[in-house]
Design a protein around this nucleic acid. Structure first.
Lengths: 241, 241
DNA sequence: TAAATAGTGTCTTTTAGACACTATCGC
DNA sequence: GCGATAGTGTCTAAAAGACACTATTTA
């Protein structure tokens, strides 16, 4: 055992400190397909490249507050499902200086997704394509609505890939899927969301049994309107017990 | 939309930066029960209270490198299963100054756990008691080997609770459990590890089927020695496919 | 041979998938 | 009634739990 084991009590203020940012993966469904809101960089590094919206964490600001503030500043949304993903801290991830970023997954339903786009037209609703199945993880591809592939700035491709993996992994055992739906929804809409995120077709009776058994569904007694066929019942999410 | 939406391109160096640390949850099994290695604080704040081992992240040091360095400095271990848990950044979590900490879960097998204790006798092998079942999460209690309850410094109780929850949640679908075992182990040892972490008894045939079906077990053909009964076969962990 | 644990065969229970069937709406 | 989708009953397949039984080692 060397002396360094007990080398403590030094003055941390004497050490150079890194910058800390939050980056948001603003995810939602657009036309039934996964999409993410990106922002074009106006300055170097990665000038004119697309990046995740983010901002620096204030010295008197909690991490979650910084994420919420960024959600409001960039997407003009008051609230959304927001969960911390991972903290990225490679030394050279920003060529200017040392920046450690705490990444967050923000889930928007179709209405909020459209509202964010309307409030900040500088945002790009990029389409996400996930080439791997299951929740093993792996790289994903991002493209403009027109289909042009996007090479994200910084390490944001890795952050986005992790967001997709986290979302897929938590989808069927957590309440996370409801964050992508409006307050009232049909079981078909719920299943569509799951199928879009997982990229696979699901069995209808089994899916409904599972959702019912978890106690997540509160019947409202009302039905959707404007269909040219039998209208489905509208449900509301409820926390079990 | 206000002007603040596009308020970017300012000089981040002009802003005050937080300190960033890594904190390690050094977990293992001691006498078949979950335990964590703690370190007594020598200086305020929380002087003489027990805390998770940690250190400041160097300005030219990746987060994972800082975690590995801390693992070496505090426990004298070259490697261990190390995975990032969560980043805690409440403004007042350290009364001295703004400190954001990236927490890591480090898993040690019984041998490494004992080696760390021997290399750094200042570490306390605290017993972990988990009062909740399943992977719902919740507070846990920590106690000295003598049974005296420990009130951890900072927000380290929350970090430790999250570590336990993560470990429980990943145990039966990931390879994480093998990090708590030596290279060669019997199926009974593997089951004992799972039962200790989950806090419940498991069905023997079903457990063995699952582990076999996942392709995690490579038979060695050798058997344990020194038993006064039928010796069990020794297995080695293998990655599937 | 006795004691103790390793390891397995098999029955039951539970859960998921497949598939078809009935129900209900607008037109 | 027709078309289309909602919603469900039920059979099958797969996985988990229960339990007992056999196997193998030391003493």
């Amino acid at each position: 055992m060397t002396e360094s084991v007990f080398l403590e009590g030094y003055d941390p203020a004497a050490y150079e400190r890194p910058s800390v940012t939050v980056d948001l993966v603003l995810m939602g469904l657009r036309g039934g397909r996964p999409a993410v809101l990106l922002q074009e960089r106006r300055d170097p590094p990665f000038k004119k490249r697309w990046a995740l919206p983010g901002s620096f964490v204030g010295i008197d600001e909690a991490l979650e507050s910084a994420a919420e503030r960024t959600l409001h500043e960039k997407a003009r949304l008051e609230r959304a499902h927001l969960e911390q993903l991972y903290t990225f801290g490679a030394v050279d991830r920003d060529p200017r200086m040392r920046v450690i970023t705490v990444s967050w997954l923000a889930l928007l339903n179709e209405q909020d997704f459209a509202a964010a786009l309307a409030a900040n037209p500088a945002l790009l609703p990029a389409a996400i394509d996930v080439p791997w199945a299951g929740d093993a993880g792996g790289p994903i591809t991002v493209a403009t609505p027109g289909g042009t592939p996007i090479d994200l700035a910084f390490d944001h491709a890795a952050i986005l890939a992790l967001a997709v993996q986290r979302l897929r992994g938590k989808l069927d055992y957590s309440e996370i899927g409801f964050a992508l739906l409006p307050e009232l929804f049909t079981l078909r809409q719920l299943q569509d969301v799951h199928e879009a995120i997982l990229g696979t077709a699901l069995n209808k009776p089994a899916f409904r049994r599972r959702m019912q058994d978890r106690g997540w569904l509160a019947a409202t007694g009302t039905r959707e309107e404007g269909t040219s066929y039998r209208p489905a019942e509208l449900f509301r999410f409820q926390r079990p017990l």
